[in-house]
Amino acid sequence: MMRRIIVPLAAGTIFGAGLTVGGMTDPARVRGFLDLFGDWDPTLAFVMGGAVLVMALAWMMQRRMQRPVFAERFSLPDRNDLTPRLVGGSALFGIGWGIAGLCPGPGFAALAIAPGSAAIFVAAMLAGMLVVRLMEGHG
């Protein structure tokens, strides 16, 4: 039972710390990456490249494992998971990320650094999530 709480909490803490160290809790840095024809900031490209390398290693390790360390079985995506809802949600995510300069992970991590502006983002994000749940009849 304790592992079900500790492992995700530790992973989330490490993820948030990495985003903070990488400067991804600074909306100006993200918007600077998206400004291809102005004062372009490549920092996000390096953060994404690091994430791709880590994920490539994780996929290689997963292929050699019988089962996950902290679960009964692997839960991996496949092409059936690619739905119009996912594509639409991804588009909305990208638009919101470009406008706000934050996405959920860095938004929550930014609560510790710039609570005022981050709280506005997190509140709007949670309100949007609630609206979707209500529209889909899950609320």
Rank of each mutant, 00 (worst) to 15 (best):
62 Q>L: 11
41 D>F: 01
61 M>E: 14
72 E>A: 15
3 R>D: 10
94 G>F: 15
34 L>P: 00
98 G>V: 05
120 I>G: 12
89 G>F: 07
63 R>D: 11
100 A>F: 14
128 G>R: 03
36 L>H: 08
10 A>H: 07
10 A>T: 13
42 P>S: 09
120 I>F: 12
112 A>R: 04
121 F>E: 04
59 W>K: 04
77 P>T: 08
120 I>D: 03
113 I>A: 07
3 R>W: 02
14 I>Q: 07
92 L>C: 13
124 A>H: 01
79 R>A: 14
33 F>C: 00
115 P>I: 02
99 I>M: 08
96 G>Y: 04
131 V>H: 07
26 D>Y: 00
100 A>W: 15
51 A>Q: 13
78 D>P: 00
78 D>N: 14
88 G>S: 07
41 D>V: 03
5 I>A: 13
73 R>H: 15
4 R>A: 14
112 A>G: 01
29 R>S: 13
34 L>F: 15
96 G>D: 09
30 V>R: 04
28 A>I: 06
95 I>K: 05
67 R>C: 02
86 L>W: 09
62 Q>V: 04
46 F>Y: 13
124 A>N: 04
3 R>H: 11
105 G>Y: 01
11 A>T: 06
15 F>V: 13
72 E>P: 03
42 P>G: 10
66 Q>M: 04
97 W>D: 03
31 R>T: 01
1 M>H: 14
41 D>H: 12
4 R>I: 00
35 D>S: 13
94 G>R: 04
64 R>H: 12
136 E>V: 03
49 G>S: 02
84 P>H: 01
108 F>H: 07
6 I>S: 06
23 G>K: 06
78 D>G: 15
136 E>Y: 05
128 G>C: 06
29 R>Y: 06
14 I>E: 11
100 A>H: 13
120 I>W: 10
1 M>S: 12
113 I>D: 12
45 A>L: 15
4 R>E: 11
8 P>S: 06
20 T>G: 00
52 V>E: 03
117 S>T: 13
92 L>D: 08
121 F>N: 05
6 I>A: 14
83 T>L: 08
131 V>M: 11
130 L>Y: 12
41 D>T: 11
9 L>P: 01
9 L>Q: 02
33 F>G: 00
76 L>F: 03
107 G>V: 03
9 L>E: 10
113 I>G: 06
37 F>L: 13
14 I>K: 09
27 P>V: 08
26 D>H: 11
137 G>C: 09
112 A>M: 11
110 A>N: 14
125 M>P: 01
53 L>A: 15
8 P>D: 10
1 M>V: 03
40 W>Q: 07
134 L>S: 10
5 I>R: 07
75 S>I: 06
9 L>H: 05
113 I>M: 12
117 S>N: 11
77 P>W: 12
35 D>I: 01
45 A>R: 01
35 D>A: 14
89 G>C: 03
95 I>N: 08
11 A>L: 10
9 L>D: 07
77 P>R: 09
24 M>T: 02
119 A>G: 15
134 L>A: 15
53 L>I: 12
34 L>Q: 03
36 L>Y: 07
39 D>P: 02
84 P>D: 08
133 R>A: 15
97 W>F: 06
109 A>K: 08
47 V>A: 14
13 T>A: 15
77 P>K: 02
42 P>V: 10
13 T>K: 01
6 I>V: 14
49 G>C: 05
39 D>Y: 01
72 E>G: 11
22 G>N: 05
53 L>N: 05
76 L>C: 02
37 F>Q: 06
